[in-house]
């Protein structure tokens, strides 16, 4: 009877001592206090505004339509004085319409947030006020001019014409160090597009995904999470810059010797512990 393969699991259960190595203990549950979704408890000791004199990584936030999640994150990063640009990976800008079958559709790179705002306000002020679209659009138009499409972006092309955008300072050269997408679909689209672009700049870029559901509340929470991640990364990169001088990284020891890039997985893992409800992905790609 013990030979029955279907009973293997029970046999193992009955005599756990026979299993060769005991499994590693489960990861410690993060303390409840850090699980707050309002982000108030994240890294309380960290300055949420980066000193302009310090080194700054350049960020890029990406969602489907460059309206809600990427723009919320854009605003939060820019408010923290981090150089930020933002994009959408969809083929068109899609916003909810009067019914689910009648979305409002606009072209990327040409339709300004203001134009969209005006059109929707004209269409049905009450509806779009109620569902928060007008509010969102007026926020967006204060951040930058129009939704941009990631696939149409030419990395390395100077973005001097975007100087008015929030977070534009530092992104003049048209490259970023970190791309943060808000949905797995966008993450895949970004990696795919970077393959297509062929990595002509020979410049590494860390691509992250933070899975955020597409509504205003989640976008707000997700924006805080992205800011948390961005600050963690920026801190690590800043430390690497400080390891300068004679001997540099060779003289250091332990964690201090590690550069920024190799620390990224750990930073992300630590971040994931803090934000267990926002599953993350990461890849090092090339511009």
């Amino acid at each position: 009877m013990t030979g029955d393969p279907r009973l293997k699991s029970r046999a193992q259960q009955q005599k756990p001592v026979a299993v060769p190595p005991p499994p590693p203990p489960p990861p410690m549950e993060p303390p409840a206090s850090t699980m707050g979704m309002d982000g108030a408890s994240d890294a309380p000791d960290r300055q949420s505004v980066v000193d302009d004199s310090k080194f700054k990584l350049k960020f890029c936030t990406v969602c489907a339509s460059n309206q809600n999640r990427s723009m919320e994150a854009h605003l939060q990063l820019a408010s923290a004085h981090l150089p930020t640009v933002s994009f959408g990976t969809g083929s068109l800008v899609r916003l909810p319409g009067p019914t689910i079958n009648q979305p409002n559709v606009y072209h990327f790179n040409s339709t300004t947030y203001r134009a969209i705002h005006n059109e929707l306000a004209q269409q049905n002020t009450q509806l779009y006020t109620q569902n928060g679209l007008l509010n969102m659009l007026s926020r967006n138009l204060s951040i930058k001019g129009y939704p941009e499409r990631f696939q149409d972006w030419i990395p390395g092309k100077p973005r001097l014409d975007h100087a008015e955008d929030q977070g534009a300072q530092g992104t003049e050269a048209g490259v970023v160090d970190v791309v943060i997408t808000c949905e797995e679909r966008c993450f895949d689209a970004v990696l795919d597009d970077l393959h297509n672009k062929g990595g002509k700049l020979n410049r590494p870029v860390h691509v992250f995904n933070v899975d955020i559901r597409d509504n205003h509340e989640e976008a707000l929470v997700g924006g805080k999470a992205i800011l948390d991640l961005a600050l963690s990364l920026n801190e690590a990169a800043g430390k690497e810059r400080e390891l300068h001088g004679d001997g540099g990284w060779q003289s250091g020891g332990g964690a201090a010797r590690e550069g920024f890039d190799e620390k990224v997985p750990e930073i992300l893992a630590a971040w994931q512990e803090r934000w267990p409800n926002l599953p993350a992905l990461w890849s090092l790609s090339w511009f």
Binding site: P24, P27, E184, F187, D188, L191, P265, E266, L268, A269, A270, Q272, E273, A280, L281, W282, S283, S285
Partner: peptide
């Protein structure tokens, strides 16, 4: 499976 390896596995797989 530490949190870090989890992230790494998913990232490599996804890439």
């Amino acid at each position: 499976l530490t949190p870090k390896t989890k992230v790494l596995i998913r990232s490599i797989e996804r890439t």
